[in-house]
């Protein structure tokens, strides 16, 4: 049937999510933004730049997931639509695999930093 189904069809916007849900997600997005700013300003000197950067990027990923799932309605879409998000992400993963050796060197230093902070003597040996 054309367009009328609540899940994935053309008329999903009024069927699957309401104004109240959108406002709650907006409040969550603001809260995570506030949390990101607070962490960057208060914990940078305590934990160092790299762990804080990773934490804040994780908050950004949570926010992006909310927007993609609810504001862009991917949670309710058919695979033919979601595919256009998965495909570029898959290409990005292939690029990451292609530059794997460089990433290994970066992450090795990152884990050394984290383990050193946690008190594990010597961190990762290399």
């Amino acid at each position: 049937m054309a367009g009328g189904s609540a899940k994935g069809g053309g008329g999903h916007a009024e069927g699957v999510a309401g104004v109240r849900l959108y406002v709650w997600i907006y409040i969550l997005l603001l809260a995570f933004t506030g949390l990101s700013v607070a962490v960057s300003q208060l914990l940078m000197d305590v934990f160092g730049h790299t762990p804080v950067t990773v934490a804040i990027l994780a908050f950004s990923t949570i926010k992006a997931t909310f927007i993609l799932a609810y504001y862009m309605h991917l949670k309710y879409e058919r695979i033919w639509i979601r595919m256009w998000l998965y495909l570029p992400l898959a290409i990005f993963v292939l690029v990451l695999i292609g530059v794997g050796p460089d990433i290994y060197l970066v992450l090795r230093d990152l884990w050394t930093h984290i383990l050193t902070f946690a008190g594990v003597s010597g961190g990762v040996h290399h």
Binding site: A2, G9, G11, R78, W84, L85, P88, L89, I91
Partner: peptide, 26 residues
């Protein structure tokens, strides 16, 4: 009516726009 253009249950207008967004995402 625009909602009658669809491909396997997905509206063509939405499908085409996500194809465009895929390029932007990359």
């Amino acid at each position: 009516p625009e909602e009658q253009y669809e491909w396997r249950g997905a509206p063509v207008a939405r499908l085409a726009f996500w194809l465009f967004l895929a390029g932007e995402i990359i």
